[in-house]
Design a protein around this nucleic acid. Structure first.
Lengths: 196, 196, 196, 196
DNA sequence: CATGAATGAGAGTTCATTCAT
DNA sequence: TATGAATGAACTCTCATTCAT
């Protein structure tokens, strides 16, 4: 495995970012195993050789992309400036999650799949998730929401919201009404928070 | 693509089943993309040629196996004979889900991953899930549990239980206590059911 | 690296031998680094895939071929049945060495080169050489030729004969007369043997 | 293939020499096929582009380096000033050969290998060798050592000394004693010289 | 004259699938 | 019906060389 260049010139950085963005996009769209390096190169407008100037191998693109994705999209930083009431907080969580899922609709499915398949990615995912869980706990406390068993509750909340966002986007079940799903999820979370 | 034989003799049926069982097992263990046909043949104790006498291609094994898996394990038939109280019903659901996840621990991750990747499998999954959702609704009604927005609620319940089972098996987060997760999940579901 | 098949059927053995013979021949002719797997496959009349059914990788062909070459050609078994006088023994050694070098003219250069480059091959070479050195010692003793410092002397003899055979075949130097080289080499060896 | 600049400025000459020295060093160390141009450039402290300003291609570096190596190291000029006796001359030859082999230990193996593989290099080698053979003849004659069949004898001597030096450095055979090898080689050469 | 990012042909290797036996 | 050797397209990755800056 040859050395990976750390880009210095402006053009160079742009090339690396282009490969990362386009490559990750393609992997998300078509699936890791159905995306080959020639396609990535073509899609990014570079040669196959260029890929290996900036990334160790194909998987490196996936990991780098996933890192960005998890950091910015799945477990984004919480804006801690505003003080809001409980309802607003929950609504904000849900809405921003749905928005993120919508924005990266294509990617989400494939990425979860890869996280399940690959240990390295799995670990990355867990680290990010646990970090967010703690952040949310702190944030809730700052807003005077003190929970019993907070980490477990937040974990469940996150899974509820993720599942909701997912269902809304893919709309698997014609029988299920969107608005109902949202309402019910909110209700559950409110109950959890209000529990004494 | 050559014609796929529909086995008639008893031995043939056994051969097909052997390929299916062993092949699916291997796919679950090592992942679809990391399992090749020669390994499947070896593991099933047949020749590679035999695989193509009973299955159209490699993916056909996955789909057939998944079908069995979803039917028998993930969305098993509900035993409708007993009349139980609410608590017992919920506990039964949760316990049997955990038991199933434990039994098929290896497989679960990979299968979910494949469902996310492949449309054909995805559709299969949804069909099975919706069928179960309806069955649960009927079952609850027989036990005099009448819900508002039943399908949405059951969908959420299933996702909660699946997430719980999953977390218990893989134990991703050291911070989270098992018993607490179970209790909290039960509490949520009980609240949903008791809601007026 | 996938598993390497150990051929059982007759055809299968032939295919492996064909790849080995033709592949090794090509490597010797064109050089290891200038011979690619497609060429080997074509030259052996098989597909590229077949190569990897019988050999771990390209280098495996070289090593297998080298093994045969060293065993049969460079350090062949000594026929120990006849009892000869000193002169006859030396002449036989030299003549058979020249004959072998002529027969495998093409290969020799490249093979020595590879032995120099690759540790695995280098080790193989040394093992074979030391085995032959010992065998020659025993053989000489059986013919009542007892040397002082026998191993060192035999080692030097072997290098003299190898160098002679080599020079005769490649005929690098127009200034040097073949017959003279042979005579001088013989004389040196006879002196070594007769030394008291 | 672009034109190769013949350096005129002092700095340019230094750059070319740097590429040659460092590039050849690296090739000797790691082997021609395992040394790439980026490594050479880095090791020489220049850009890859610069290599192609002073050399036609990668092989050109090898040939230039080999030329220097053969001239200065393998077949060095004989100092013809001193008049010595036979023993001293032989000892000097052997000692200087061993010293050179030791100094360029790493390189020797790889270079011989390349000479065997490449016609251009092979020719270069032979030219140098024959030149040295003649020089040695003249030198011996100046020291009143007149041989019958001098060129053939000197050729054999050189091969003996080369083989000796080689064995001493790489120490392939634990069975062989260094001092014995040196003594025996000296004895053989003395015999050749003293022969009437 | 120097740079080093970009190139892309070509390398070794894998594996789902076929078909003569 | 069963076999498993053979296939060859497709894959990931390398590196000598070029050329815009």
């Amino acid at each position: 495995m040859s050395e990976v260049r750390e880009p210095s010139k402006k053009t160079s950085i742009e090339t690396k970012q282009k490969i990362l963005d386009k490559g990750f996009e393609l992997i998300c769209k078509k699936g890791y195993h159905h995306t080959n390096c020639i396609d990535i190169a073509k899609y990014a407008g570079v040669s196959t050789g260029s890929i290996y100037q900036y990334f160790t191998n194909k998987k490196d693109i996936l990991i780098s992309g996933m890192n960005e994705y998890l950091t910015e999209i799945m477990f984004p930083k919480i804006k801690k400036d505003k003080v809001l009431n409980k309802e607003e907080i929950i609504s904000n969580f849900i809405n921003s999650s749905i928005k993120n899922h919508k924005k990266y609709k294509i990617q989400h499915e494939e990425l979860i799949s890869m996280i399940h398949q690959d240990k390295e990615l799995g670990k990355l995912y867990q680290e990010k998730e646990i970090k967010l869980t703690k952040e949310i706990k702190d944030y809730l406390e700052k807003n005077n929401i003190i929970l019993k068993k907070p980490l477990e509750k937040i974990h469940i909340m996150l899974s509820l919201i993720d599942n909701l966002s997912h269902e809304l986007i893919y709309h698997h079940h014609d029988l299920l009404q969107e608005s109902t799903l949202i309402e019910e999820t909110k209700k559950i979370i409110m109950n959890m928070i209000n529990e004494k």
